[in-house]
Amino acid sequence: MLSDTETLIERIDSPRAFFSLADEMFVERGTIDDWYLLHDLHYKAEKLPIGPRFWRLVLAGQTIGVLVTGTPKGMLRERHIVFPNLKPRSGDTRLTNTNRYHYINANFRVISRFVIDTMFRGIGAGYRMMNLVSRMEGNTFMEIQSSMSKFNAFGQKAGFKFVKPMNANKYDQVLRFFRSHFAASPQDFEAILAEIAAKPPAEQQRLAEICTDFYFRNSALENTSNGGAAMEQRRASMSLRDAVKGIQQIGLASPMYGIWKCPDPKGSVPERLALTQFDRQGPSERLRL
């Protein structure tokens, strides 16, 4: 004989998925060895920013994520939109320009490289780590320039506010340059290199010199903080691939600029945080330890 049974159904409002190992993940200081461990998974694996600091995400002692911060650029068009008082003016002197750089270096850092092991992507580790590292850095502002932010909202989830995307300053000049020297599309890196490789050696050398000259004349990075005698050394050693890539970067790249202001008093953030600490307060609220 069957007895009556009672079925209980629980319905959770706004349910959220949770990765069971997240409680065992921690964010802490790393080293360049952590970057070398995972850097092949990053599309800019060959270079590091000026003044790098390394942070890692660990699980059971194993590095599963690396974030590299760097020294911010002295001049940035999108930053001047958010901070108009930092924009250079006609009456600026050497003293005001110097003090501007001092202020930026003392109060800003920039997220330069960020990679999560492929085994742990899609669980929300990226934006959580980005937010916690931005707090642990101890600066007032954290910047990010990321083309991926157009397609993946990890920066927005971490609390960053973004400026409307804009074409690069050299967009028109770079398009004219490529179209005047190559039949390949200006955006197609490999097609441009293949077109050059199909030409006689003398013509290849001529195009290499033209590309290198155009890059160094138009690169704001090369003509500001990286100028001087060292620039001539870099020019002499620059490969054709790097020259073409550099030209595309200064003219065709349009990364979104994001900014985040730290709500925590300097010196109050621990040197090691559980990844789940992100969920105990809003992205722009003070830590609730």
Rank of each mutant, 00 (worst) to 15 (best):
I196H: 07
M1W: 11
L59G: 08
T140D: 12
E190F: 12
I116T: 12
N139A: 10
R206P: 00
Q233V: 12
F19R: 07
M75Q: 11
F189K: 08
G251R: 11
T63V: 07
S268G: 05
L289V: 08
A229T: 02
D188W: 05
T31Y: 11
R53W: 03
F83R: 04
G138I: 01
I32W: 11
S237A: 11
P49R: 06
F151K: 14
G91S: 06
F120Q: 08
G122S: 14
A45V: 10
D13W: 15
R11D: 09
S90N: 12
I116W: 02
L48P: 09
I12A: 09
M231F: 01
Q277N: 11
F19S: 09
R206N: 04
S147D: 07
D92L: 00
A22C: 10
R288W: 14
F214H: 00
M75G: 12
K87D: 13
W35L: 10
H80L: 10
I259K: 03
S219E: 00
N107D: 07
V58Q: 12
L76E: 10
K164H: 15
I250F: 01
R179I: 06
F18W: 02
R94E: 06
N218F: 12
L37H: 08
D264V: 07
A184C: 03
T98G: 15
Q249C: 08
R109I: 09
W35G: 14
Q173V: 14
S180W: 00
P165Q: 00
V115S: 03
D188H: 07
V269M: 06
G74I: 00
I250E: 05
A194G: 10
P49Y: 07
E195Y: 09
S239M: 01
C211L: 03
H102N: 10
Q62P: 03
T224N: 02
M166E: 13
Y103I: 06
P201W: 04
T63H: 05
T96S: 10
F160Y: 15
L207W: 13
N97M: 15
G124T: 01
A153N: 10
Y215M: 07
K170V: 04
M238N: 03
D4P: 11
R79L: 03
S268W: 05
S225R: 00
D33N: 09
E10Q: 14
T98W: 14
Q248G: 04
V27N: 01
S180P: 06
V27T: 02
M148L: 09
R53T: 05
A22M: 13
I111T: 02
F141C: 02
M136F: 04
I116G: 09
